[in-house]
């Protein structure tokens, strides 16, 4: 029990500490692939530090919602990330929220941010909110369908149980799992505003979605939103690592050595996934906005197909 709490506390701090580093790694890799030198790995930390020291400029007619939304967004994302096992399963608070709750917590964060985008009443905020929610109407069900597939496969919606099942002898190669993985990757790309869905580095207002929504934010508020975006990327990569590459993860009640192994393998998994993400991003061009629903529709259909296959193939117990 004490181990579970320690793991949980460590994880709460860890996701926060590692998230900017992961963002730094993806930026660095991308820059190197484009034959640029790229910013130092610690640049996201420095950016955040700089942002929180800066003055906040708030639009004249912004309401209390505009100023509280960053805290709500950051807190929900942080809580969701803290509930996804990273280096060890069996988290103390894992029983409070299953995978569906984690998806819904991200939904709460998105809801608040979309509202904040509309608060000032500029066209940029509106276009960003509108498009972000449009992506979400397909990405969230696609994600839930992937969750359904995993849950039916493992007989549980708890991430620890799913991860343990994947490590166990009953998991094997399965077409539904492959479909769920593809769906999850597409959703991860869309939800984290990566190329080809959105471009986190763009500064042309009409091509941005996520960035347009947060255009009015500055200073500590922007720092919180940037941090939340980093944590969200870490969350998705951790989720894929936890479910689809569960090897090495310390199981509940494991000793110190196993925890260390879990930590090392987790770092390696993150590096590999971050590298693959950057590789994919440099290899593909950004889509037009109205191609994105088709892209996400593929994810939804793959997730649904995976679920239906499991529904049909599973004999009643």
């Amino acid at each position: 029990m004490r181990v579970a709490w320690l793991t949980q506390l460590l994880q709460i701090v860890l996701v926060l500490a590692l998230a900017p580093l992961l963002t730094g790694v993806t930026r660095k890799v991308r820059a190197r692939l484009l034959r640029r030198r790229g910013p130092p790995l610690a640049q996201p930390y420095l950016d955040l530090l700089k942002l929180i020291r800066k003055e906040v400029v708030v639009a004249g007619n912004a309401s209390w919602l505009f100023r509280t939304a960053p805290y709500a967004v950051f807190a929900s994302t942080w809580v969701a990330a803290a509930l996804v096992p990273t280096f060890a399963t069996g988290l103390a608070l894992g029983a409070a929220a299953d995978l569906i709750v984690i998806v819904a917590l991200l939904g709460t964060a998105r809801f608040m941010l979309a509202l904040a985008g509309l608060d000032v009443g500029t066209s940029f905020g509106g276009i960003g909110s509108s498009r972000e929610m449009m992506f979400a109407t397909l990405a969230e069900p696609a994600m839930l369908m992937a969750v359904f597939t995993l849950s039916l496969f493992a007989g549980s919606t708890e991430l620890s149980s799913i991860s343990a099942f994947m490590l166990g002898p009953h998991a094997g190669l399965n077409i539904s799992l492959a479909l769920a993985l593809v769906a999850l990757i597409i959703v991860a790309i869309a939800e984290n505003a990566r190329i080809p869905v959105d471009n986190p580095a763009t500064h042309l207002e009409l091509t941005m979605v996520h960035e347009a929504m947060v255009l009015e934010y500055s200073g500590r508020h922007l720092a919180l939103i940037e941090a939340a975006a980093s944590v969200k990327l870490l969350l998705y990569l951790s989720l894929i690592a936890c479910v689809f590459i569960p090897w090495g993860t310390a199981v509940a009640g494991a000793g110190l050595a196993a925890q260390a192994v879990g930590f090392a393998t987790y770092a390696v998994k993150l590096l590999i996934l971050g590298f693959l993400l950057s590789l994919f991003e440099t290899a593909i061009a950004k889509m037009r906005v109205f191609r994105v629903p088709e892209f996400l529709g593929v994810a939804l259909m793959l997730g649904l197909l995976g679920t239906i296959l499991l529904f049909v193939s599973r004999a009643p117990h």
Binding site: E55, V56, V57, A75, W78, R220
Partner: peptide, 22 residues
């Protein structure tokens, strides 16, 4: 989480806030 964030921001971040046109 929100309270902890608010505390940290309060302790370490700049408190300056300026109203300006959008």
């Amino acid at each position: 989480a929100a309270a902890a964030t608010a505390l940290i921001v309060r302790r370490f971040a700049s408190h300056a806030l300026r109203r300006a046109p959008a």
